[in-house]
């Protein structure tokens, strides 16, 4: 089915100043997805490592360190379905985030908060046959950024998804239920209404806490749907 552009932020959202010069002015040219867009991405990610989804340990382990990242330990888990409610199996999810102090491990991040020597800030996983996924990480901190003077991003995790067709490609951000910075954030609010913001907000999932170990947040996602017969005809590539 056509991408419902109304579900997404407009390219031009002047409250988020950087979008002003980076948004096309002409209308998008609408075309039907063809065999390429309906193809299934193949990444060679069959070798996803046992720590790839574990941001508390994956950076330290890769750098010969023994420890774990600092900060509130959380699991973010959920299920990915398409707009028809069908699970999206074996889809690649990549995430990246700031550390518990709100600092990114990036040469361009000038925020004064400290780096965590045990934390890199990225991970990946594949959804299972039922579309379920899970990351183990720390709660990222809020951080300031220049927009209307100093604004503050609510705590968030950047998330990229591939479904079972290239046409489903999506990059979004995961916010956390109850964060008072969400309604103030020009980026979160590019989507226009609180109901849409809520679709990007992970919910505290107390029943799934890891007792004496971690809190758990649930974040379900919906990718673009396709014609009913479409997915069945795809080769199982991955």
């Amino acid at each position: 089915m056509r991408r419902d552009r109304g579900s997404h932020p407009p390219a031009y959202a002047p409250g988020y100043k950087t979008s002003v010069l980076r948004s096309p002015r002409a209308a998008l040219l609408s075309i039907e997805p063809g065999p390429l867009e309906l193809s299934r991405p193949v990444f060679g990610t069959e070798a996803i490592g046992p720590l790839d989804h574990n941001l508390i340990r994956n950076f330290a382990a890769a750098n010969g360190l023994q420890g774990e990242a600092l900060g509130p330990r959380i699991v973010v888990h959920g299920r990915v379905v398409d707009q028809n409610g069908r699970p999206v199996p074996h889809g690649l999810i990549e995430i990246w985030q700031a550390n518990a102090a709100g600092k990114y491990r990036h040469v361009k991040d000038g925020y004064r908060a400290p780096l965590d020597p045990q934390f890199g800030g990225c991970g990946r996983c594949l959804t299972d046959a039922d579309g379920r996924y899970q990351f183990f990480t720390i709660q990222p901190g809020p951080y300031p950024w220049p927009n209307n003077g100093s604004e503050w991003r609510p705590a968030h995790i950047h998330l990229s998804l591939f479904g079972i067709a290239f046409a489903q490609r999506l990059v979004t951000q995961v916010y956390f239920e109850g964060d008072p910075l969400i309604p103030l954030c020009p980026i979160a609010n590019t989507v226009g209404d609180p109901v849409a913001v809520d679709r990007m907000t992970a919910k505290l999932d107390m029943a799934r806490q890891g007792p004496f170990d971690h809190l758990t947040y649930r974040f379900d996602m919906v990718l673009r749907g396709a014609r009913q017969t479409f997915f069945e005809t795809r080769p199982e590539g991955m």
Partner: peptide, 26 residues
């Protein structure tokens, strides 16, 4: 169902997509 909304990949997209450009390796 409504699609999950898109958000900008932000200035630190390299951490997720190309860590060498962020200044580290995974």
């Amino acid at each position: 169902l409504k699609e999950t909304p898109s958000q900008t990949a932000g200035p630190f997209v390299h951490i997720g997509f190309a860590p060498h450009r962020a200044g580290f390796a995974m």
